[in-house]
Design a binder for these strands. Structure first.
Length: 424
RNA sequence: CGGGGCAUAGCGCAGCCUGGUAGCGCACCUGCUUUGGGAGCAGGUGGUCGCAGGUUCAAAUCCUGCUGCCCCGACCA
């Protein structure tokens, strides 16, 4: 991609209404623009990053045997009346009327829809176990949206739903998803933890959360310093009735091993064992060997758009974003310096540009007629992991200036080494 | 929903107190000169001053009402 043709949307100054670093940088790097409170446009660069997240999720979900579907964002409110959640979910559910004055809502989650779908779709216990998923826009009318896409009203979520014959099989489906999640967050390249969690409004028996560790995280997590024990501090205080979560620091771990340490996290994934809650209340019965069964369900969410913000919270410096390579919108920036009356520089850039393209390296060629400083800072705020600089200095020698995002100065490398340097 | 703040060009802001027909920096467009870390000069584009009412000869400015956005809290993926 040539920067001269790209709608970059970078901004020099921090927006006045952004508080946390990921929000500021997402605006300044031209990833998002606000439409309304908790509602955002995703610009070309942001969309690329989001798509990287989605594709990693999709790959691992498919690998785990889950099947991708797409459910509607608009759902009949009657389904929510049937499940009894219309009151429980409350104001967060955005309800409206269509032209026939039928009540609909914007889907904040899809247990009702998927359960209803499966009533017609699953016709035999032989089809179980099965896990279906989608990557789709959700809407939750948050009391107070904040921090950009970190806590937005509209957001992109991957939600998966498993259906099993019995509890044991559900346990297996759950583990498969947990493993897939582990692989997803490893691939994305963030520092994360899994903790026991409260199943909240979704309901069910058991749940775990995946948190990206960051100082700005809204959740407080408690870990034992001696064992694997890890729990959402809020849940632990509920279990221990009414303590201040902060007071947990240094207390003995409930599993009897070690003492508790607190960290802050951003919840990016949540997996639940739902049991028969939805299958029973919505009457999803599947013919079994001798009698109909209500399948044991599980549900598994990942906040794709939130991951983008969380990744920035964890990976930035004073110049801007520092993408983990799996999420970078481009793997390399090709910056040309002083090309006026220097056709050789343009030619050299074109040559390298094509070399990258032939090797399937996503390259952003900054061919704009701008000062070098402007280009460097744009590439840095966007967070592209590597930059290749082409200018007069190295035109004669044939060497290439190559700089990693966090390096102060470029190093000189040979033409042949370029590709392998970027791929590692 | 309670408490606080803000609303003037794409972004960041001044002007408001003390009413007189809107300004600065950045960005953007044209030209020339520049070009290795956010260039210089010259010229230019862009604003129903959030909305509605009121006071006044005259309102960005004063008064009233409303809306939107941000922050803190309760709540939540």
């Amino acid at each position: 991609m040539k920067a001269s043709q790209l709608i970059l949307g970078t901004q020099r100054e921090n927006p006045s209404d952004a508080e946390i670093v990921s929000h500021k940088l997402m605006i300044r790097a031209g990833l998002i623009r606000q439409v309304s409170s908790g509602i955002y446009n995703w610009l070309p660069t942001g969309k690329k990053v989001l798509q990287k997240v989605e594709n990693i999720i999709r790959e691992e979900m498919n690998f785990a045997g889950a099947q991708e579907i797409l459910m509607p964002m608009v759902q009949p409110a009657t389904l929510w009346e049937d499940s009894g959640r219309i009151d429980q979910y409350g104001q967060e559910l955005l309800v409206f009327l269509d032209r026939h004055e039928n009540k609909f809502c914007l889907g904040p989650t899809h247990e009702e829809i998927i359960t209803d779908l499966c009533k017609n779709l699953l016709t035999s216990y032989k089809q179980l176990p099965v896990t279906l998923y989608q990557i789709q826009t959700k809407f939750r009318d948050e009391i107070r949206p904040r921090f950009g896409v970190m806590r937005s009203r509209e957001f992109i979520m991957k939600d998966a739903y498993s259906f099993d014959l019995d509890k044991e099989s559900l346990g297996n489906s759950y583990l498969i998803m947990k493993e897939a999640y582990t692989k997803i967050f490893n691939k994305i390249g963030l520092d994360y933890r899994v903790v026991k969690a409260d199943s909240g409004a979704i309901g069910g028996s058991e749940s775990e959360e995946f948190h990206v560790l960051a100082e700005s995280g809204e959740d407080l997590l408690a870990f034992s310093d001696k064992s694997e024990y890890a729990i959402n501090a809020e849940l632990l205080t509920e279990l221990q009735e009414g303590q201040d979560p902060f007071s947990l620091e240094g207390k003995p771990s409930p599993d009897g091993n070690g003492i508790l340490k607190l960290k802050r996290g951003i919840e990016v994934g949540h997996i639940f064992k739902l049991g028969k809650k939805y299958s029973e209340v919505l009457n999803l019965r599947i013919p079994g060997e001798d009698h109909d069964i209500y399948p044991e369900m599980g549900c598994y969410g990942i906040g794709a758009s939130r991951i983008v913000a969380a990744a920035i919270e964890q990976n930035h410096d004073e110049k801007g974003i520092v993408w983990p390579s799996a999420l970078a919108p481009y793997q390399v920036a090709l910056v040309e310096v002083n090309t006026k009356d220097k056709k050789e520089i343009k030619d050299k850039c074109l040559e390298i540009y094509q070399l990258f393209k032939e090797n399937d390296i996503e390259v952003l060629w900054d061919d704009r007629d701008k000062r070098p400083g402007v280009k460097f800072s744009d590439m840095e705020v966007i967070g592209i992991p590597a930059t290749v600089i082409i200018g007069e200095r190295t035109l004669e020698t044939g060497e290439i200036e190559f700089k990693k995002r966090q390096d102060e100065k470029p190093e000189l490398v040979s033409h042949q080494d370029l590709i392998s340097l970027i791929k590692t």
